[in-house]
């Protein structure tokens, strides 16, 4: 479904990605792990069309989306739940969700999608008229996921979804991703919480200094000595 090949990406002179290749098949959950600054967010931004790569190609469903603008990529069905949630604080919960469905393809179905969102996150329905900035951290994360779903994505990319959340809420987060997976959603998951994300993932990639240094099944990586030492402190 998604095919990334030999991606190079720079911020000024600093190279964030160096020949990164990865594949994601339909219905898969793929985890991307790595230390801070390894290039995880850069990779997501490149796929989402928010940062142009210097070299390499990104293909989604047979469409070359390398360097295309984000609205085109979104419309093809690639969406992201960005790091730090990025909700619109002074808009109401309902308005935030509506903003997820701005593209023509999603807009026509927004009523049904909204109902589905509220079914999945009943708390959002209760608070639909409340300003999003007044929600708790966990609720804001649910809102960010709901808003992403409003765009009718086929591939969802999560960037550090558990960052700054209370431990109980983190568990809920992973349950939601599992549920989405069960419904057939394709997921790319970037997480600090390495063990939880590898347990959930079908496959994973390890990024170091902008390069893929290791890849394999989730279980395989979880049992890899290098991964255990570097990321799990075992």
């Amino acid at each position: 479904m998604l095919d990334v090949r030999d991606l190079d990406l720079f911020y000024g002179d600093a190279q964030a990605l160096d020949g990164v290749s990865l594949q994601v098949a339909e219905g898969e959950v793929v985890a991307i792990i790595g230390a801070n600054g390894a290039g995880k967010t850069s990779l997501i931004r490149a796929i989402a069309g928010m940062k142009k790569p210097a070299r390499g190609t990104i293909t989604f469903d047979g469409h070359d989306i390398t360097g295309r603008v984000s609205s085109i990529i979104c419309d093809l069905g690639v969406a992201q739940v960005a790091e730090g949630r990025q909700i619109f604080p002074s808009m109401s919960v309902a308005e935030n969700l509506e903003m997820g469905a701005v593209l023509p393809r999603a807009r026509t179905k927004r009523k049904e999608t909204l109902e589905r969102c509220y079914e999945m996150f009943p708390k959002l329905k209760v608070r639909s008229d409340q300003a999003a900035g007044t929600l708790s951290g966990g609720e804001q994360q649910m809102l960010a996921i709901g808003r992403c779903l409003m765009g009718q994505p086929r591939l969802m990319m999560f960037d550090e979804p558990s960052l700054g959340l209370a431990p109980a809420v983190v568990g809920e987060m992973f349950k939601i991703i599992k549920e989405l997976h069960a419904q057939g959603m394709t997921v790319i998951l970037v997480e600090q919480n390495v063990s939880a994300s590898l347990k959930l993932a079908d496959r994973g990639y390890v990024l170091e200094n902008g390069r893929v240094v290791l890849s394999g099944t989730g279980a395989g990586l979880l049992n890899d000595d290098g991964v255990r030492q570097a990321y799990l402190g075992l």
Partner: peptide, 16 residues
């Protein structure tokens, strides 16, 4: 309003 409050998020949602 979306652009004003979080331009990156607006961009990510496909707002031009």
């Amino acid at each position: 309003q979306a652009i004003r409050e979080d331009q990156d998020a607006a961009d990510a949602l496909g707002i031009d």
